[in-house]
Amino acid sequence: RMNIERSECCALMLISTAGMMIMVQAYDLIVLFLALELFSIPLYVMSGLVRGKISSEEAALKYFLLGAFSSAFLLYGVAFLYGATMHTNLAGIVSAIQGGAVQTVFLMLGVALLLVGLAFKLAVVPFHSWAPDVYQGAPTPVTGWMSVSVKIAALAALLRVFVIAFPSVAAQISPVLGVLAALTMIVGNVLALVQTDIKRLLAYSSIASAGYLLMAFVPYGQGEVASDSIAAGLFYMIGYLFASFAAWAVVAAVEKEDGKGLQIADYAGLARRHPWLAVAMMIAMVSYIGVPPTLGFWGKFYLFRTALEGGLVWLALIGLLTSLFSAYYYLRVVVVMFMQPGETEARREVWVNLLAVVSAGATLLLAFIPWQLLDLASTAFLRFP
């Protein structure tokens, strides 16, 4: 499809997955950096796999250049942290900070640069500029994979490194995280309002979701809230994963061989011709908004609860208001599918349709056991080998 070699894409995806698995288990900053590169380089290549399509080649180039730039920030951060603590291992950094034998200026510079490198992967404002163009230009299956895998890896690395190694600087970092979260929620949702291309709409939706994830992370330094912060972020990520797979599977099914069919108007009449795909997309959209009974509702509920427990009432209010704004552009897709006349055709590929239906079903069914998932998220993260 669209001149993509599936064998190449699968091989690159496996390499990227291996890097992601190493990244989320890394307890050394050098290993974290190497895993980040192993994870990212295949994504740069996959973004440009549509041969002869200028937008795909442009996406790959933009992603590579900005990705290399962000990696430099992360590596400089590791260098400053080594200069401050004489360690790159997380346990060694913790020991050095607790012992007081650190260069405070180097420590804060290292933490800030490390945050910039990981914020780029999460597409946090103002490090988000790559996401809309890359999501639009990359092959749709690659974009769907990227929208989920990159956030999972970056979030896990961010939580692990900061919660384990840097709780002592939370008082200085938390206000910055709060501002970044607020800006990301506002910018992502406001710019999504004016999008007419479904891939760009989902790209800005992904940026907004990064803001919600970051909102849970803001009070990570408050001991009594830290565990809830981690659990809420991971829980929201589970809901985002299933909703995203459902949405991107529908996009892949509706997209034409020549790359057309990506305008929101192209979804007119989808409910009449392909009701299961339309229902799957509707479930994904309402889960993104946070409407019950979906995982997205519980995900945002736990995020807002964590923010309130951390005393961040202003941030929870921004999250609530931006969620209300998001209802406009998400429900616009639903209205076009169910209420506007059209003859939208979709691919009758079993695996694509099955992914959409199964992911949408999981978004609904798992919402009936939220406490079990939250307990699983609470116990699955901070485990030393």
Rank of each mutant, 00 (worst) to 15 (best):
G223R: 07
I22Y: 15
A307S: 09
T140E: 01
W276T: 14
A327D: 11
G296R: 01
R305T: 09
A356H: 09
G296M: 00
F338L: 04
L109R: 07
V78Q: 04
Q263N: 11
G299A: 05
S326I: 05
A278K: 02
A246T: 10
M281C: 12
K151L: 02
Y212Q: 02
L308P: 00
A247F: 11
D133N: 15
A96D: 01
L43Y: 04
R272W: 00
V163Y: 14
V105M: 10
F235Y: 15
V125P: 03
S147H: 12
W351S: 13
A284Q: 11
S47V: 00
S359N: 09
V279D: 08
P370H: 13
R200L: 07
V350P: 02
L38A: 15
S209Q: 15
N353T: 13
A192P: 10
A91H: 06
L308I: 12
F166G: 10
M185I: 06
Y212R: 06
L183Q: 01
E37M: 13
V78Y: 02
K260G: 10
K151H: 06
G52V: 01
L114V: 03
Y288E: 08
V352E: 03
Y236Q: 09
G223H: 06
P141W: 11
Q136W: 06
P275C: 11
Q222N: 07
V94G: 12
A153D: 00
L107T: 07
F106E: 15
G188F: 01
T294E: 05
V134C: 11
L374N: 03
L193H: 08
F297K: 10
G233R: 12
A101S: 14
Y44L: 07
A360H: 07
A367S: 14
A60L: 00
V102H: 11
Q98D: 14
T85E: 08
L49N: 05
V111W: 01
E5Y: 10
E8C: 02
A192L: 07
A123W: 00
V335N: 10
Y220G: 11
L158R: 09
V333D: 02
A59Y: 02
G144W: 04
L373D: 05
L241W: 10
V291Y: 05
I164H: 14
A284D: 10
F73H: 05
L90H: 08
I97V: 13
S47R: 01
R1V: 12
A170Y: 09
G311Y: 12
S206A: 13
V291D: 05
V161D: 05
M108C: 04
A59P: 03
G100R: 12
C10T: 12
L365A: 14
A131W: 03
A278W: 06
I318R: 09
L115I: 07
Q136R: 15
L324V: 14
M21F: 15
P370Y: 12
P126D: 03
S40I: 03
Y204C: 10
G188M: 02
